[in-house]
Design a protein around this nucleic acid. Structure first.
Length: 629
DNA sequence: GCTTTGTGCCAC
DNA sequence: AAACGTGGCACAAAGC
């Protein structure tokens, strides 16, 4: 993998005011400045201070305001454990280093494999579960707005001597009880943010290219702030519109335990078409499959794609039933009751919840909102949504990672797949698309497999990057994203299967299974590098959008006296891998769209410097999410 | 009774 | 087991 210059360090920036927050006994919070001399800038003694937890929001607000020209920066164990109550009190923070998230990255990154942090026995930071984001209504007033650079990449040197726990220059603390028998996480000592921060700094500083990991950790931490803020703000959701959608296609909401009338009617049609008794429950797979067999339908499974191939009177009502039943069970009235409160849908975003670094979500299936309910996502009166998604993000990321200028050039004009057609590699846009997706997913069959050789000929660098990632995985190796998030090692199953493949006693198909698993792992690592780097781009994009929106709101004078940080400002309300939704006052829509586009360019430069890769967006200003693209 | 597994479909 | 990656979630059936 080519390793070019990743980022330039902003020159002449002031040392940040950097405070480490930790919980003391009882309801006491400790705020200790990192000894860089900046504490006095906000009137804090070098030794820091302690305060009752109830005073924390005011303390943080004052510190952010007093920092003035200096960037304010916080370090805490877990954003989810600190930020919800701050937001609840109307306090936004500019930057906060999330030790838990950073620890997870550094423990497995190949770039820090020899660090004390990575080689230590598992400790409290490994056992740490993410705190659930609290669900709190809004209140109080916002902080003094600030404008800062996206990330603080220049302050690593200033953060070196954190000697309150470990002596200066001492190795990072080994995980306690390393030699003792494991007694379970309940016996692990309290996580100490000071020694952990020092260990993380040392690990990053000792890595071959500290700028990459530094950017990754900053982006991951910024993502945690975004996630907290989006949970706080919620996605505007019109329950009445949602109910209308449901009633239109399902019939009115039935009493608990009954099918909606439209579904009941379809169930009866299915029974009639199959000559089945009224007791046949179409929700019972075994029973329905048997009924299909008796009727001679010839379905081997109940999958939609398979049923669609069959010509029989039952197919149409059955597919309709499955379709409507999906809507009812996944996003029906029960979903509405459970997840929508006061006109907002609040899910819990799980930052880094996917191995590749993508976000996951917990609650309400937020990352799978089907298109047919997006009509219910309506902006508040006088507000709009600015919806933006990155066009062909993953192939563009791949082109940049591989320094494949031909592929980057194919994306220069806009539609990258059209550009690939123009390059002469393939005949149609559809072939370009399935070919590229196949290359990134490891597809071998059908059209994608057929066009792969031609793509490889035209874009040898890009294709060989993913092929190499696949081979590394097949060998049992570890691959890494552009910024240094590494894939997990294959694990016990892999080892056992490889051993079994050479064991004659294990039988003939042991070798087949081993090969199959190996190929599967190769597809995983192949996809990991691209999906994971795309996730890094998206994190940088999000962080830049967050900072720009805040500055925009400040310029407009918004939020200063608002009862909570976001009521008068444009703010992020949804994020879906390569797509964002910003809720914005109507008059600011154009400015917001401009910032979102500029943020995409900034993200590209942060990751890939001057490499000529474009990250165009499709941007729409809409009243309803359903009207975007 | 409970939890786990299998199935299927939604999103990117 | 649908080719081809990452997930969440609901429901019924199977397992304890």
């Amino acid at each position: 993998m080519t390793r070019g210059t990743v980022v330039s360090v902003p020159a002449g920036r002031m040392t940040p005011v950097h405070l480490v927050l930790s919980r003391g006994s009882g309801d006491i919070v400790r705020a200790i400045p990192v000894p860089s001399g900046a504490a006095s800038a906000i009137g804090l003694p070098d030794g820091g201070t302690t305060l009752p937890v109830g005073d924390l929001p005011a303390f943080v607000r004052d510190a952010e305001a007093a920092a003035g020209e200096r960037p304010a920066r916080w370090t805490w164990d877990d954003t989810n454990r600190w930020y919800p109550e701050l937001l609840h009190a109307g306090v936004r923070v500019d930057r906060a280093h999330d030790l838990r998230l950073a620890h997870r990255i550094l423990r497995v990154s190949a770039l820090t494999a020899t660090s004390a942090l990575a080689t230590a026995e598992p400790g409290p930071w490994d056992a740490m579960e993410p705190a659930p984001a609290s669900r709190a209504p809004a209140a109080a007033s916002g902080p003094v707005p600030q404008e800062e650079a996206l990330f603080d990449l220049a302050d690593a040197g200033a953060r070196r001597r954190l000697g309150t726990v470990a002596a200066p220059g001492a190795p990072a603390r080994q995980a306690p009880d390393a030699s003792a028998p494991s007694t379970g996480p309940e016996h692990l000592p309290e996580p100490d943010p000071w020694s952990e921060l020092e260990a993380q700094d040392a690990a990053v500083a000792g890595s071959p290219d500290p700028g990459r990991l530094r950017l990754l950790l900053a982006a991951e931490s910024a993502g945690a702030l975004v996630a907290g803020e989006m949970h706080h703000a919620g996605l505007p959701w019109r329950a009445d519109v949602h109910d209308q959608i449901l009633s239109e296609v399902l019939g009115p909401r039935p009493p608990e335990g009954q099918r909606p009338e439209r579904l009941e009617a379809l169930a009866q049609t299915i029974r009639t078409a199959l000559d089945a008794p009224p007791s046949l429950n179409p929700d019972s797979h075994p029973d329905l499959l048997k009924a299909l067999q008796y009727a001679g339908v010839g379905a081997r499974s109940l999958r939609k794609w398979e049923l669609e191939k069959i010509d029989h009177p039952v197919i149409e009502p059955l597919l309709e039933y499955k379709n409507l039943n999906r809507l009812l069970t996944a996003n029906g009235w029960n979903w509405l009751d459970q997840w929508v409160r006061d006109g907002r849908f609040r899910t819990e975003y799980v930052v880094g919840g996917v191995v590749t670094g993508r976000w996951a979500s917990s609650g309400g299936g937020a990352l799978q909102l089907p298109h047919n309910v997006r009509r219910a996502v309506q902006a508040d009166p006088g507000w709009v949504f600015v919806v933006a998604d990155a066009a062909q993000l993953e192939p563009r990321v791949l082109a940049a990672m591989a320094s494949d200028e031909a592929m980057a050039a194919a994306g220069q004009a806009g539609d990258m797949y059209a550009g690939i057609v123009a390059s002469g590699a393939v005949e149609t846009r559809e072939l370009a698309k399935v070919g590229m997706l196949g290359a990134m997913y490891g597809g071998t069959t059908g059209a994608s497999g057929q066009v792969l050789p031609r793509l490889a000929k035209t874009f040898p660098r890009a294709i060989s990057l993913v092929e190499e990632a696949a081979r590394t995985g097949e060998r049992g190796g570890v691959v890494s994203t552009w910024l240094g998030r590494s894939s997990p090692p294959p694990g016990a199953t892999w080892d056992e299967l490889q051993a079994g493949a050479f064991d004659d006693a294990a039988g003939a198909d042991a070798a087949v299974r081993a090969r199959s698993y190996t190929r599967s792992w190769g597809r995983f690592t192949r996809n990991f590098v691209v999906q994971g780097t795309a996730a890094e781009w998206a994190l940088c994009w999000l962080a830049s959008i967050r900072r720009r929106l805040w500055a925009l709101g400040s310029a407009e004078g918004g939020g200063g006296q608002a009862p909570e940080p976001f009521t008068a400002r444009p703010h992020l309300v949804f994020f879906l891998h390569d797509e964002v939704v910003v809720h914005a006052p109507e008059a600011m829509a154009e400015a917001v769209a401009g910032e979102v586009v500029a943020a995409a360019g900034e993200a590209g430069r942060l990751l890939f410097g001057d490499f000529p890769v474009q990250f165009p967006l499709s941007v729409a200003t809409v009243a309803s999410y359903a009207d975007a693209k």
